[in-house]
């Protein structure tokens, strides 16, 4: 597993953790029906600390271990990962439009506060798909190299 794969795996786990916290908190709030400011601040604080872990791969120690030159093959994989992420975002936006159409109705309206939330979910989807695509493409690439040399 090279450094890019490790980084992709790290971000995948981190994103899954962040969105799990969000989903779990929402589920708990929905079930309990009781809400306090303390609970909101606790959940947001928890997310803040998990979110700050995103900066770990940019620390000096981590970077010094994983410093390497990027070749054309890795650049192509990066482009394809970003491409996969963007396709995921497009599908997400189309799905959101359709689902909202059926929930609200064609003559209904949506609160404006929902839009930034939709964008944040889109960013999460992009990041998760990007990481998964990186893992899959590097694995396939390694399989091909190993198969070719053998």
């Amino acid at each position: 597993m090279n450094s890019d794969q490790r980084k992709a795996l790290f971000f995948l786990v981190l994103n899954v953790a962040i969105w799990s916290i969000l989903a779990f908190s929402g589920f708990v709030i929905y079930l309990s029906g009781v809400m306090s400011t303390l609970y909101v601040v606790s959940c947001a604080g928890c997310l803040l600390w998990v979110g700050l872990m995103c900066f770990f791969p940019f620390s000096k120690r981590f970077r010094s271990k994983t410093k390497h030159l990027i070749d054309e093959r890795e650049l192509m994989i990066t482009h394809r990962c970003i491409f996969a992420g963007y396709i995921g975002i497009w599908l997400y936006f189309i799905a959101v439009s359709i689902i909202l159409w059926f929930i609200v109705g064609p003559d209904g309206s949506i609160p404006i506060g929902a839009f930034p939330a939709l964008l944040y979910v889109a960013m999460g989807i992009f990041s998760i798909i990007n990481s998964i695509a990186a893992l899959i493409l590097y694995r396939d690439d390694k399989d091909q190299i190993e198969g070719g040399t053998a």
């Binding site: 971000f11 981190l14 994103n15 962040i18 969105w19 916290i21 969000l22 908190s25 929402g26 709030i29 029906g33 809400m35 306090s36 400011t37 909101v40 959940c43 947001a44 997310l47 803040l48 998990v50 979110g51 700050l52 995103c54 900066f55 940019f58 990027i70 650049l75 990066t78 506060g113 929902a114 930034p116 939330a117 964008l119 944040y120 979910v121 960013m123 999460g124 992009f126 990041s127 990007n130």
Partner: peptide, 29 residues
Amino acid sequence: IWSNLIFIMLMAGGGGIGAVIGLQMMSRR
């Protein structure tokens, strides 16, 4: 307040994820 909770937490989580995406894109050669 609990109807706004998801939005607030999404802001916190999304800010972190947005930073990661920005940094990841900038760190590529």
